[in-house]
Computed example of a mutant assay.
Amino acid sequence: MNFRNTLLSISLGSSFILPFFLYKEWSFATWFDAVFLIGLLLIMAYFAMVLIEGQFFTAFIKSTQNFFAKINKKDGLIRESEKRTSDSVDYRKEFPNRKSFLQVGLFFCIGSLLISSILYYLN
């Protein structure tokens, strides 16, 4: 089983359990709500991975480190005596299966929206 199928089966399984926690009962309407919410959660996880891969937060971390390095004189003296620079090593994080989160999330969101709309307009 590849990662996408595993993610799909875990998300589908959790969508059957989630209505009991949110609504204290299970019905098709609450199940479609849970499917939509899990789809949104997967899409948000995908975009968080994109931000981390794009090193969006690196500028904030570096500026905070530089700020505290300039304020703390003791660390500045130690760094000068050891002849260290304040530049930190950049680490690149790559998520190999992030596209699966987007695909399964979009499938859940669009599918639940379509089925919920059909059920609403037929009743």
Rank of each mutant, 00 (worst) to 15 (best):
N66I: 01
S86Q: 04
F95T: 09
F101N: 05
P19F: 01
G54Y: 02
Q55A: 08
Y23K: 15
I52K: 07
F57H: 03
S117Q: 06
I43R: 03
L37D: 08
T64N: 10
S81H: 07
S88W: 14
K99G: 10
A69T: 02
F95C: 11
T85Y: 00
K74W: 02
K93D: 04
T58Y: 15
F67Q: 02
D75E: 03
E53V: 06
N72A: 00
K93C: 14
S27D: 12
P96Q: 10
L51K: 15
N66Q: 13
A34R: 02
A69C: 01
Q65I: 11
Q65A: 11
F21P: 04
D90Y: 12
P96K: 09
C109A: 14
S27G: 10
I10W: 12
E25A: 12
I61D: 06
V50P: 03
A34N: 06
F16L: 14
T64Y: 12
G111M: 07
Y120D: 08
L7V: 08
S15Y: 01
S63Y: 02
L22A: 11
V50M: 10
Q55R: 14
T6I: 13
K62M: 08
M44S: 14
D90H: 12
S116P: 06
G111A: 06
E53R: 03
Q55L: 10
S27I: 02
L119D: 04
I110L: 15
L114K: 05
G105A: 09
K74I: 07
G54S: 09
F32I: 12
L40H: 02
A29T: 13
D87A: 14
N72M: 00
K74N: 05
F21N: 04
F28P: 04
S100H: 15
A48Y: 15
K62E: 15
P19N: 04
S63L: 07
A29K: 14
